[in-house]
């Protein structure tokens, strides 16, 4: 296991890997979006087509899972940014892993449960907000006892499990991908000299390709489930 670089700010320990990675990806996503939407016209140009396709893709996720029209407009932006952010964070560790000595400097921020839990918590809080906005605090709390009061404990536990499954699924997938990639590169390749090196190279390529696929799927799944949870909160049962 690589050692993280940690610094303390306001007495709180921060992990530099996640901060560097997320900042880098945020910048990349912003610059990409800004570049794609540099010239927005009624007759779409090539770059505009790309960003419109992305927006329609995430809008589609929102519209199929959220029936409430008022929530859709806000969630459109949320889903769009969340999808791009997570997608790019998933891919970061595949082609770029920076190490300084024994210390990790750059890898996928989503291979850290804190990151995924942050986004899952954000989704959870958003779902509370939308639910309260729609039904009022009283109505929202009463929704936990629906359709029958018997389901109250299950509904409460569901909030926790939703949060955990949402975050740990993403974390597990990306973390496992990186661990396997590191294993192939660091353990398998140098184990028996040149023969294993030759075997490890295509294996690493194949696994990297598969990880790109997994990273994209997981980003899609994360956004879709977020929308499902929020959609459930604003729907009348």
């Amino acid at each position: 296991m690589e050692k993280p670089i940690v610094f303390k700010l306001f007495g709180l320990p921060f992990d530099l890997v996640g901060i560097l990675g997320s900042t880098l990806i945020a910048l990349a996503v912003f610059l990409l979006c800004k570049w794609l939407a540099a010239k927005v016209e009624l007759r779409p140009n090539k770059r505009q087509n790309v960003i419109e396709y992305l927006l329609e893709f995430t809008d589609n996720i929102v519209n199929t899972n959220v029936a409430d029209k008022d929530a859709r407009k806000h969630l459109s932006l949320y889903a769009f940014v969340l999808f791009l952010f997570i997608l790019f964070m998933n891919q970061l560790g595949l082609f770029l892993e920076l190490k300084v000595g024994d210390n990790m400097l750059l890898k996928s921020p989503t291979a850290d449960p804190v990151t995924t839990m942050t986004f899952a918590m954000m989704t959870l809080l958003l779902s509370f907000t939308f639910g309260v906005q729609k039904f009022g605090t009283r109505g929202y709390l009463q929704n936990y006892a629906r359709p029958v009061a018997l389901l109250l404990p299950i509904n409460l536990i569901e909030e926790l499990t939703n949060f955990l499954t949402l975050s740990l699924r993403l974390y597990g997938n990306i973390f496992a991908g990186e661990v396997l990639l590191t294993l192939i590169g660091n353990q398998l390749a140098p184990s028996l000299g040149i023969p294993t090196l030759i075997i490890a190279a295509p294996l690493a390529i194949v696994w990297q390709g598969f990880s790109v696929f997994i990273g994209s799927i997981q980003a899609y799944v994360f956004v879709t489930l977020s929308m499902v949870y929020i959609g459930k909160k604003v729907a009348k049962e």
């Binding site: 050692k3 921060f14 900042t23 804190v114």
Partner: peptide, 14 residues
Amino acid sequence: AEAGKLYIANAIWY
């Protein structure tokens, strides 16, 4: 620092 430890404060930055 120890590996495998969670740095919850990162959430603020995220």
